[in-house]
Simulated assay, not measured.
Amino acid sequence: MLHTLPEIARSAHAEKLLSWYDRHHRELPWRVSPAAAKTGKRADPYHIWLSEVMLQQTTVQAVKPYFAKFLKLWPTVTDLAAAPVDDVMAAWAGLGYYARARNLKKCAEAVATEHGGVFPDTEDGLRALPGIGDYTSAAVAAIAFDRQSAVMDGNVERVVSRLYAIDAPLPGSKPTIKARVVELTPAARPGDFAQAMMDLGATICTPKRPACALCPFRNDCLAFAAHDPECFPVKAAKKDKPVRLGAAFIAVTPAGEILLRRRIDSGLLGGMTEVPTTAWTSRLDGGLTVDHAPLPADWEACGTVTHVFTHFELRLSVFRAKVEKAVTDGWWEPVANLGTQALPTVMKKAITQAIPLAFATSPN
């Protein structure tokens, strides 16, 4: 049974963490610092939403340039709503998990058309928007609208599981951890509290070699007291990822144009640009030979590239051929322009395997 902490203990934990955050918070482009907040500055809901969507399963350092790019291209949510979807996908290329980009566009359109360009200010209202789940709705509600919403990401899971030495393995322990986060989240400064928990997990309470001596919870942490913080959170044994096989075909004309095509909107890498490949999926292998090439040519084997997705590993045999421009499924794009295309990382790997300098001078 989960016992509720006395209110005085919850308040003390929040005060310790917020005091630490006031001195040691990370400076992030989408964040309003504690000092700025004291002057009355508020976080922009568009900035918070955009950053939180980008940060899902992606590091802060990887997100920063994409966040800056999106704000330069589309300074407001209504600008993003009006943008061509292909432009959004191209700007997102390389950030991964492309369903996020498709949902980003749908959500922006919903905010613009159904809410007059203004984000709802409650968890329930935010959760009703396309692509926004429990985590993002809580984060935007707390950080942008000062709602007492319990925000839980991987960093928060780690901090709380160690603080209370929750020894049930993930993901089954998530409800227990979430209940503790609900208890701890204060009515005052809930957004700063949420960001403080994330910062603590990212900089101090790290997965390996946590800096416990610097942690504001060190005198309260049950895992620290037992000398085994790295044992938490407990995780269920991982299953080996299946390996899928396929082939990718890099067809280049004498004028330096490469054959590209657009994937269907649904499924893995939906709506993104690709070179012709065989019909691999997360469950099935595709063809591995030139028998599956998009057009007849003297195809040359260029080696294999490997890309790890969330649920499987893909190994693509790469083939290259010099061809005459022909009418086919797709379009011919100058190699010099590849940087403007919505090519996911796995396709960039395949192209680079066949044309090593393909992206050396491509515009970003």
Rank of each mutant, 00 (worst) to 15 (best):
K238E: 13
P169R: 13
L28K: 03
D285Y: 12
V156Q: 02
F119Q: 07
V32G: 04
A279K: 13
N364F: 13
D192P: 11
S149W: 14
A138Y: 04
G256H: 03
V118E: 10
W92Q: 02
E52L: 09
A93T: 06
A293K: 10
C215S: 05
S161N: 07
G40I: 03
R283N: 15
F217K: 04
T352C: 02
V252H: 06
D199R: 01
A93V: 12
F309E: 05
V305I: 05
R31N: 10
A112K: 09
V63S: 06
P233D: 12
A91D: 04
A213L: 07
A354W: 09
E257W: 09
F232D: 00
G246E: 02
T136K: 01
G246V: 03
I355R: 11
K348R: 13
Y97H: 00
G96L: 05
A354D: 06
K69G: 09
R218H: 15
E324I: 14
A350N: 04
R10K: 09
F70A: 04
L222N: 09
M272K: 03
A354Y: 07
A194S: 01
L55H: 06
S19N: 05
P334K: 02
P84F: 11
I264Q: 06
E114S: 08
A236W: 10
Y98G: 00
E274S: 03
K178C: 15
I48V: 10
A336D: 10
L184E: 04
L163H: 00
L269A: 05
L2W: 12
T185I: 07
N103I: 01
E27Q: 07
A138E: 10
R26M: 07
D121R: 06
T289N: 07
K41F: 11
S51I: 05
P356N: 03
S266G: 11
V156H: 00
A251E: 04
L50D: 08
A150S: 01
F67A: 02
A293P: 12
M197F: 01
C231V: 13
F359K: 13
V32W: 00
G40C: 13
F312W: 13
E313W: 14
S19H: 06
E27D: 06
A12Q: 15
P276I: 14
Q148H: 15
L357D: 12
S266D: 11
A82C: 10
H25K: 10
F67P: 03
C205W: 01
F70L: 08
G94N: 03
V88P: 02
R262I: 08
R102V: 05
L316T: 07
W20V: 00
H47D: 09
L71Y: 11
L338H: 02
G267A: 14
D291E: 12
A301I: 11
A247R: 06
L104W: 15
